[in-house]
Simulated assay, not measured.
Amino acid sequence: MVNCVVKNWQGEEVGAATLELRVAKEENAAHIVHKALTRQLNNRRQGTVGTKTRAEVRGGGRKPWRQKGTGRARAGSIRSPLWRGGGVIFGPKPRDYETKMNRKERRLALRTAFQSRAEDMIVVEEFAENLPRPKTKELVNALGRWGVEPNDKVLLILPERQENVYLSARNVEALNIVYANNLNVYDVLVADRIVTTAAALAKIEEVYGE
């Protein structure tokens, strides 16, 4: 179990929250989290890049010059990989990078990764009512009061879509918004700071707790 301090809109400590998730054993934790991260990054790859071999490049059917007597090196095709405009040797071809991982393993890896970031987590009260209209400056100022440094990459976890919060945050370059039921290992690990509301934390325990 991890105990977290809850802050209000002004950055004052007003309560406490707990996080209790079933995580991997210490000796297996790094392996399973790495496996889940590798899977996510692999599955992002499109695998659509492709090059042509000398058999696929247009042209090159005629021998450019006779075999002997010219003083030049022998050549059989202008589409040789040695020629400009020729084929590519051992170039990439379209392929599927999809990596499979059991659902229970994926969820265990996500819980382990999330709880391992407890020291970098900031829990705040619901603040949507403090943004009656979209205002990026007010949200950035609030992040500063909560302890976020200007250059930190921030992952903001919300229990559900809150329109004014979303519109206030979408133009902040280093701020990424996700919803509690849609977490992923990469976003959790790459962030310098994780800001979550108490309601989102409770929803994470409800959705991912087993």
Score class of each variant (00 low, 15 high):
residue 1 M to H: 13
residue 1 M to G: 12
residue 2 V to E: 13
residue 2 V to A: 13
residue 2 V to H: 10
residue 3 N to Y: 05
residue 5 V to M: 12
residue 8 N to E: 11
residue 8 N to Y: 07
residue 18 T to P: 00
residue 18 T to E: 15
residue 19 L to F: 03
residue 20 E to A: 13
residue 22 R to K: 15
residue 22 R to C: 00
residue 22 R to M: 04
residue 22 R to T: 13
residue 24 A to Y: 04
residue 26 E to S: 15
residue 27 E to M: 07
residue 31 H to C: 00
residue 31 H to Y: 13
residue 33 V to F: 02
residue 34 H to Q: 10
residue 34 H to C: 00
residue 36 A to L: 03
residue 40 Q to V: 04
residue 42 N to R: 13
residue 43 N to I: 04
residue 43 N to L: 03
residue 46 Q to S: 14
residue 47 G to A: 08
residue 48 T to W: 09
residue 50 G to I: 00
residue 51 T to E: 10
residue 52 K to W: 01
residue 55 A to N: 12
residue 56 E to T: 02
residue 56 E to P: 08
residue 57 V to T: 01
residue 64 P to D: 04
residue 65 W to L: 02
residue 65 W to K: 07
residue 66 R to L: 09
residue 69 G to H: 08
residue 70 T to L: 09
residue 72 R to S: 12
residue 75 A to K: 13
residue 75 A to E: 10
residue 75 A to V: 12
residue 77 S to I: 07
residue 84 R to Y: 01
residue 85 G to E: 08
residue 86 G to P: 06
residue 88 V to Y: 06
residue 89 I to N: 08
residue 95 R to T: 09
residue 96 D to L: 02
residue 96 D to P: 04
residue 98 E to S: 14
residue 100 K to I: 02
residue 101 M to Y: 06
residue 104 K to Q: 14
residue 105 E to I: 05
residue 107 R to N: 15
residue 108 L to N: 04
residue 109 A to N: 11
residue 112 T to K: 04
residue 113 A to E: 02
residue 114 F to Y: 13
residue 115 Q to N: 05
residue 115 Q to V: 08
residue 115 Q to M: 11
residue 116 S to R: 12
residue 118 A to K: 13
residue 119 E to S: 14
residue 119 E to P: 00
residue 119 E to V: 02
residue 120 D to N: 15
residue 120 D to K: 15
residue 121 M to E: 07
residue 121 M to Y: 06
residue 122 I to L: 14
residue 123 V to M: 06
residue 123 V to G: 03
residue 128 A to E: 15
residue 128 A to L: 01
residue 129 E to A: 13
residue 129 E to I: 00
residue 129 E to Y: 05
residue 129 E to Q: 15
residue 131 L to Q: 06
residue 132 P to L: 03
residue 137 K to W: 00
residue 137 K to V: 14
residue 138 E to F: 04
residue 140 V to S: 12
residue 143 L to K: 06
residue 145 R to G: 02
residue 145 R to T: 10
residue 150 P to Y: 11
residue 151 N to V: 01
residue 153 K to C: 00
residue 155 L to N: 05
residue 155 L to F: 04
residue 157 I to L: 08
residue 158 L to M: 09
residue 159 P to F: 07
residue 162 Q to I: 03
residue 163 E to C: 00
residue 164 N to I: 02
residue 165 V to M: 07
residue 165 V to E: 08
residue 165 V to N: 05
residue 167 L to F: 13
residue 167 L to M: 07
residue 169 A to V: 02
residue 169 A to K: 05
residue 169 A to Q: 01
residue 174 A to N: 15
residue 175 L to Q: 04
residue 179 Y to A: 02
residue 179 Y to R: 08
residue 179 Y to Q: 11
residue 179 Y to T: 13
residue 181 N to S: 14
residue 184 N to M: 07
residue 192 D to R: 09
residue 194 I to C: 00
residue 195 V to K: 05
residue 195 V to W: 02
residue 195 V to C: 03
residue 199 A to H: 01
residue 203 K to G: 00
residue 204 I to L: 04
residue 206 E to C: 01
residue 206 E to R: 15
residue 207 V to L: 02
residue 207 V to N: 08
residue 208 Y to D: 03
residue 210 E to L: 09
